[in-house]
Design a protein around this nucleic acid. Structure first.
Lengths: 133, 133
DNA sequence: TATATTATAGATATTGTAAGTCTACGATTA
DNA sequence: TAATCGTAGACTTACAATATCTATAATATA
């Protein structure tokens, strides 16, 4: 069980956009260069973020991507869910009379992780970086 | 990102052994039947649990598997780690000067989940089941 | 309006891992 | 010594992640 590389790309791209502090769209070319990934592949990932309404895309010359929300509202969980989906990490296919207690317990544990990912914003990392430098 | 089916088999097998309340080893045949999985495949999974010192295996006729620890000490996390490995859920390969802040934050979130999985014992489910019935 | 620029979508590899089978082997009991 | 039972390794199959390529649609600007 691993988070996908796509999620890593998505998180780094979003952090890049948060740091950018501009309203002008940034092209996938530039975003891809900053992570050493092919633009075509990154664009597939970014399209998921667009559909999750985390970023807006602008077609045509001078187009690109920009944040669609307030930059200090963006949390980890929304990005992860946009890429990985929102299904539970654990599904039990067996037949149980009253649901699977094991699954219920793991769901509880997962929710602890999600709570943390929900309350942590990308802007927190920017602030932390400033303190470190 | 998903927990593997093997982890599900492992958890259900361990729960079965906890419920069994016997010192006599239980064969893979019986354990496999209770989950509708092939014995050969389940035995591969159980071997991982043996190596993680969660269960003991007894070869030969009348052999099988039995818990190697006290039945009320067995937690979710140890079983999951035995099957999935202990590596972090998120690894960032990019070059960062002082480590990846994104990875660090996700590691924090993961630890919240692990805390819960560590403190929850299989015996808790047995008790809960009794209360429900 | 024409052209360059840029995102989107679909088809198509490629790779890696999970999931499962088969068989030979070793250990133990009766 | 024969039946039982776990172990280990080779092997297959299936599927999802990780890309790449190309055609197309949208837009700015010269």
């Amino acid at each position: 069980m691993k988070f996908s590389k796509a999620t890593n790309y998505a998180l780094h791209t979003m952090l890049f956009l948060v740091k950018a502090e501009t309203d002008k769209p940034i092209g996938v070319q530039q975003l891809a260069e900053s992570q050493d990934v092919s633009p075509t592949y990154l664009s597939k990932i970014l399209t998921k973020l667009v559909k999750a309404r985390l970023i807006d895309s602008i077609s045509g010359a001078q187009g690109g991507y920009k944040l669609s929300r307030n930059r200090d509202e963006i949390n980890f969980l929304d990005i992860i869910h946009a890429i990985e989906g929102t299904a539970s990490l654990f599904e039990c296919d067996f037949h149980h009379n009253n649901g699977c207690l094991i699954q219920a317990e793991i769901k509880n544990a997962e929710e602890k992780m999600n709570e943390h990912l929900r309350k942590t914003k990308l802007i927190d990392l920017v602030k932390k970086e400033l303190r470190l430098s």
